[in-house]
């Protein structure tokens, strides 16, 4: 299983901190999250950023596969000063 940590906007909006899902690509992981939580809007992930082993992964690279027993953070970046 993959531990998915919802951070900042997603956590505030959906009140979910962590979800355990089957391993697979980030897109597949998001599909599973959306299928289990009907209130979650898939479009919210298009502007999100996923941190996996400290590396940021953007929407166009959501085919990246996350292995079993790994952990990802799904968040949205901020750029204000």
């Amino acid at each position: 299983m993959v531990k998915v940590i919802f951070y900042n906007l997603l956590r505030s909006k959906y009140g979910i901190n962590e979800i355990l899902v089957k391993d697979g690509s980030i897109s597949q992981i998001i599909d599973e999250i959306v299928s289990r939580h009907s209130n979650i809007i898939r479009n919210d992930f298009e502007t999100s950023i996923v941190f996996y082993h400290g590396k940021p992964i953007h929407y166009h690279n959501f085919s990246t596969v996350i292995d079993d027993n790994e952990e990802i953070i799904i968040t949205h970046f901020v750029g204000g000063g």
């Binding site: 940590i5 956590r11 941190f51 940021p56």
Partner: peptide, 21 residues
């Protein structure tokens, strides 16, 4: 260093992006 400390004041949490560290 070479990662972000993510601060969430709404949910009162701070985590590092390389959470495996």
């Amino acid at each position: 260093t070479n990662q972000f400390l993510l601060v969430d004041l709404y949910n009162n949490q701070i985590i590092k992006t390389n959470s495996n560290e």
